[in-house]
Amino acid sequence: MFNASSKTNIRELLANAGSRPVVSVGVGDAMSARLASVTEGIDAILTSGFAISAQQLGLPDVEMYSRTENVQAVERICYVSGKPVIADMDTGYGNAVNVIKSLHEFERAGVQGVIIEDQVSPKRCPVCVDTTNVIIPKAEAVGKIRAAAENRRNLETLLIARTDAVEFDEAVSRAKAYREAGADLVQPISRLFSDKADIRRFVDAVGCPVSLVVVGWLEGLSKEDLAATGASIVHFALVPVTAVHHAVGQVMAQLGRAGSAEALEAVRSPHTAIVKDMGMESIGVLEEKYLPRESEL
């Protein structure tokens, strides 16, 4: 188990990153968060709506879960995470007033930051659909960001404002407006860009810290390429969930064909490794410290 006080502050990470972006990885469950927490080179954890939908519900990311279900998943992740957690807060679950309540719920769950997007509700993850998503009027979106910025219970909570605008000038205009409303970082969607030069152009145009989700063709960019974009934080949102999907699907197919686990080809972790990584050693330490010996009963 991890102590929340051991977590690095996300604002300190961003302030001290230098020329390289802060690296975040998307997770949809607490086991993935534990593994990310002990992995060198990963600075922070993103609770990915796509991954939560897939791993918790077995459904696509089209806001099929409620705010309560999202918060519950995030709370479990925060409890075991040794690194700062940023939550995908979707559209904020209502209007600007609802956003305030939503933000407080996620703050209470233990996050150090949230992402709020400007889609209509129910939202649709851009990687789940081929069409352009419908976004709310800019004034309404600005109100949501301002409401969040002015009503944080923790003044350190990081606000990332995402725009799903796919026309470059509109995306820049919205990003600037969200920054003026109080967002700490702005986040475009990958569909806005056709190459890495486009990303740099966006970063330069908005003139403020940018959060970049690395999905689709962006996963082909090198560490040096990502640093050259000028993004302040990069989120590898889908790498873990796509790896889990492939690995579990592969071993299920092999087990179904063989009817036995004797000669499975898929590589699996020994159960002892899982027990260790889930923190059984710390449980033993706590038992030794707090539970009475049989002779004392």
Rank of each mutant, 00 (worst) to 15 (best):
Pro21Glu: 00
Ala109Glu: 07
Ala175Gln: 04
Ala30Lys: 00
Met252Ile: 13
Glu156Ser: 05
Val234Arg: 15
Tyr178Thr: 07
Met252Lys: 07
Val251Gln: 01
Arg153Lys: 12
Asp61Ile: 00
Glu294His: 12
Ser282Gly: 07
Gly49Asp: 07
Asn3Ser: 15
Ala247Asn: 10
Val22Ile: 09
Val71Thr: 12
Ser269Asp: 08
Leu264Ala: 03
Ala243Ser: 14
Arg174Leu: 05
Ser37Thr: 02
Gly182Asp: 07
Ser81Pro: 04
Val25Asn: 06
Gly94Tyr: 09
Ala183Tyr: 04
Arg293Asn: 11
Ala165Lys: 01
Leu218Cys: 10
Ser194Pro: 00
Ala227Glu: 03
Gly58Leu: 07
Thr68His: 09
Leu226Ile: 01
Glu281Met: 04
Ala258Leu: 12
Glu294Ala: 08
Pro188Tyr: 09
Ala4Cys: 07
Ala44Gly: 09
Gln187Lys: 03
Asp118Leu: 04
Val23Tyr: 12
Lys144Leu: 13
Val62Asn: 14
Ala36Ser: 15
Val71His: 05
Lys123Tyr: 11
Gly82Met: 09
Arg268Trp: 10
Lys101Trp: 06
Ala147His: 11
Met278Tyr: 04
Ala149Glu: 08
Ala17Lys: 14
Val210Gln: 09
Gly259Glu: 07
Ala175Asp: 06
Arg153Ala: 05
Leu13Lys: 15
Ser269Lys: 15
Asp90Gly: 05
Ser269Ala: 11
Cys208Gln: 07
Asp169Met: 03
Gly28Glu: 11
Ser121Phe: 15
Phe202Pro: 11
Ser5Phe: 08
Tyr290Arg: 00
Gly143Ala: 14
Pro60Gly: 03
Leu46Ala: 12
Ser37Gly: 14
Glu170Gln: 13
Thr157Asn: 05
Asn3Phe: 10
Gly26Glu: 11
Glu287Tyr: 03
Val111Arg: 05
Ala148Cys: 13
Leu255Ala: 14
Glu170Tyr: 00
Val251Ser: 01
Gly182Lys: 00
Asp204His: 04
Glu224Pro: 01
Gln72Ile: 05
Ser81Lys: 06
Glu156His: 06
Val99Ala: 14
Leu238Gln: 12
Glu170Asp: 15
Ala197Trp: 01
Gln250Ala: 11
Glu262Ser: 11
Leu192Arg: 03
Asp225Trp: 02
Arg146Met: 14
Met278Glu: 07
Asp277Tyr: 03
Val215Phe: 11
Ile135Pro: 05
Pro209Asn: 09
Glu167Lys: 02
Gly182Cys: 00
His104Val: 06
Gly182Met: 03
Ser19Cys: 00
Ala205Cys: 11
Val214Phe: 07
Asn151Met: 06
Gln112Ser: 12
Ala177Thr: 08
Gly41Asn: 12
Phe168Lys: 00
Ile283Tyr: 09
Gln187Trp: 06
Glu180Ser: 10
Met280Lys: 05
Ala181Val: 07
Phe168Val: 07
Lys101Ser: 08
Val23Glu: 08
Val186Tyr: 04
Pro292Leu: 08
Tyr79Gly: 00
Phe202Met: 08
Ile160Pro: 13
Thr229Trp: 13
Thr242Tyr: 10
Ala171Trp: 04
Pro137Ile: 06
Phe50Pro: 06
Asp90Ser: 01
Asn16Arg: 12
Pro292Glu: 10
Ser37Tyr: 07
Ala149Met: 09
Asp225Lys: 01
Arg162Phe: 14
Lys123Trp: 15
Glu140Tyr: 13
Ile199Asp: 08
Glu150Ser: 06
Lys223Phe: 05
Ser24Asn: 05
